[in-house]
């Protein structure tokens, strides 16, 4: 990742970003980067931070102001725009980090452990933001040890082991079992399941497993911790 960003030199070989050698500063025109556990300048406010990074990307004046405000809105930090980063939570720092990475309208977003140390709710928000950027056509290069998150976000993966790429390809190709099919039924009676088993056997297939699906722990956590919308009050009743 550091080689790609020109921070260290490769011992052998070379890397290119959209056909520009990553040793050249010019290659960073189309890159946004969020390092692991970023701190930024804690004496700056959220807005000042984005204005600073925007200037480094060549933006200025009114377009820069508008862009910075827009990015704050995108990452949900408009209310904290004038607060110093020293008072930001871990999740907020990661989100301002995403905003600074995107302020120069990059085509490639490089994220190093974007949810490390962030609580599940913050992690969920960051994941949604990454998916939003992906849907906008931005290529996302994500480096993470949180494999569930990688599975949710990435189309292609590469597995590094002791500094070497040991597997690389489309996620579906690498982890799906092509000769197996998973069905999830609701309100299925025992007789229906039994019938399924017989039908499978008759057609030459084999029913390998039958179990109750488990909810994802993160979803369960979010379900019980997120505030429920208040029910509308019933008119005409007094206590």
């Amino acid at each position: 990742m550091k080689i790609l960003l020109g921070l260290v030199s490769p011992t052998a070989g070379s890397s290119f970003i959209f056909n520009v050698n990553s040793k050249q500063v010019e290659s960073r025109e189309s890159v946004g980067f969020l390092p692991e556990n970023p701190y930024f300048y804690k004496y700056l406010t959220g807005l000042e931070t984005l204005l600073f990074f925007g200037k480094l990307c060549g933006l200025q004046g009114k377009p820069l102001q508008e862009k910075a405000r827009h990015m704050l809105q995108t990452v949900g930090l408009s209310d904290a725009a004038d607060r110093r980063l020293g008072g930001y939570s871990k999740g907020m720092l990661q989100r301002i980090g995403l905003a600074q990475a995107l302020i120069g309208d990059p085509h490639l977003l490089v994220l190093d452990e974007p949810t490390a140390g962030v609580d599940p709710a913050g992690s969920h928000e960051i994941r949604d933001l990454i998916l939003q950027f992906k849907s906008q056509g931005i290529t996302v290069l994500l480096c993470s040890h949180m494999l569930n998150q990688v599975q949710e976000i990435c189309d292609r993966i590469g597995v590094m082991n002791h500094g070497k790429l040991v597997a690389e390809g489309r996620l579906d190709d690498l982890i799906s079992a092509p000769n197996q099919t998973e069905l999830v039924l609701e309100n299925a009676s025992p007789s229906l399941i039994e019938a399924f088993g017989r039908l499978a056997t008759d057609s030459g297939a084999r029913l390998l497993d039958q179990r109750k699906p488990h909810a994802d722990l993160e979803r369960f956590f979010l379900k019980i911790t997120q505030p429920k919308p208040e029910a509308p009050s019933t008119p005409g009743r007094t206590s």
Binding site: L5, V25, E26, R28, P35, Y39
Partner: peptide, 14 residues
């Protein structure tokens, strides 16, 4: 230490 250096040099800044 704060990795701000990386964030800055990851921009088109020599």
């Amino acid at each position: 230490e704060d990795r701000t250096l990386y964030t800055i040099l990851a921009k088109p800044v020599s």
